[in-house]
Design a protein around this nucleic acid. Sequence first.
RNA 1: GGUGCCUUGGCCGAGUGGUUAGGCAGAGGUCUGCAAAACCUCCUACAUUGGUUCGAAUCCGAUAGGCACCUCCA
Length: 486
Amino acid sequence: MEIYLHNSLTGKLSHVTPLDGKVIRMYSCGPTVYNYAHIGNMRSFLFADLLQRVLRVVGNFKVLWVMNITNIDDKTIRDSAFGSNEWKEEMGEQSNDPLENLLKFTSFYEQKFLEDITKLKINLKHFYRIPKATDFILQIQDTIQKIYKNGLAYYSAGSVYFNVSEWRKKDIYGKLFKIDFENFRSGERIESDQYEKEQAADFALWKSRKPGEPYWEFELDGQRCDGRPGWHIECSVMEKEILGLPFDIHTGGIDLKFPHHEDEIAQSKAAYGIDPTAVWCHNEFLEVEGQKMSKSLGNFFTLRDLEKKGIDPVDIRYAMLSAHYGSVYNFTFNGINAARKARLRIQDFIYSLFDEETEGPDKIDVDALRNNVFTELANDLHTPKALAHIFTFVNNINPKTIKLSSKKKLKSFFVELNKIFEVWTLDQKPEEKLTIPEHILKLAEERFHLKKEKKFELADKLRKEIYDAGFVIKDTKDNYEINRIE
RNA sequence: GGUGCCUUGGCCGAGUGGUUAGGCAGAGGUCUGCAAAACCUCCUACAUUGGUUCGAAUCCGAUAGGCACCUCCA
């Protein structure tokens, strides 16, 4: 099926088709690993995951998916510095080598990050590469040399900056974000600049070495500028080295539109003369209870925080996938609860498909259903509409009356659908292995007899007793079930 | 100050000029000693305001409110 995506470059839908005629090459801005990722980060990664899955399953494409890890920036340097309060025992001993500390620190959080996204059912096998900035220092330096030689960068006090005003003579700066240069960075903000930039809009390609910080040797045009890479250049280089330019799709949070992605475009064109990607996709932000997530408001959650509150990561996945990536998602506990129930409703339907004992006369047009659902997904990942089709279908059919042949087709449809959503179990309903203590079983049996004899008061008393012990009884037509209280 | 986005029923969330999105919650019903579960039915909105139109949640203008980016925050 043809896939269309909202392209931030044009503001319109773009038809996705592999530039090289074979595979879709996709780059996603990944995390800066200086702490546990929060659920806002998670939304971005879940969006990228959804996109690559839709490309594979609905678009039938091969996908090379790359997500970078930013392991060197102000925050990772700050928090890994010798004597930092952010250092944890599990990271090992701190040494007097700043680079070693940085790598220990960031690999700790990288590992935690990978664990977290795995819980959200992002499959690490789907990545082609998960590159780290520090593994590309030489290539970064090489790219900076190129930009410099092209007259679009300058040296200043040990750092190297991209020259935006020079660049604007050659090309547009502001492809993703319309900039009013007259009003760019108004008033008081300019004075916060710590670096010797020629102009406020210029950004660092390379930052000079500071005492106690990790650095790499670098010489530019005869001038020593030992230091470390700027943030924007990392992505430009990794995507070029791994995917080649231009590639097909670049994803990221909407906050990265400017300056990060704008600068990526400028750098790639300035160094190689190539626009990095055909389609830019940005996901909107996440709010918590209608407010921006922030530590001061006390609504800042990592995945780990939510797990401690008893929330299943799969429900977070479902909740986030059920909203459109282009709109602000309001995370609420109420909403997660609703999402869970909605998810389980479909799960129950799927379980019923595995009941091959009962069969009815109803034939299902599974192809039509599949077509409806996939058409919505192909149209800019419209998951809310896709799920609405599923619910309408599920609500209008009694699984007991479906013909066996249709059940089988439905099953394979849900298998396919789950390759995208991955929030359901495609299997028989698991037999609940209950370890119910003997005395509870006895009590339950006793209660059942009392009930049959219509001694309800006594029966209820026993039920209360069983309930207090942690079990709940549900009467069925001629029998009863015991379950552990959840 | 600049740029862009948003405002839909109790809550979440679709809608891209003319027909019920969907979910959760709630109400009624079937079932049931009661309860639970399951199933059926129901609830029907579009920030305010002016305009365009035979017709607007949907297009245009204004107002109010919210959000984001311009500050290496996904």
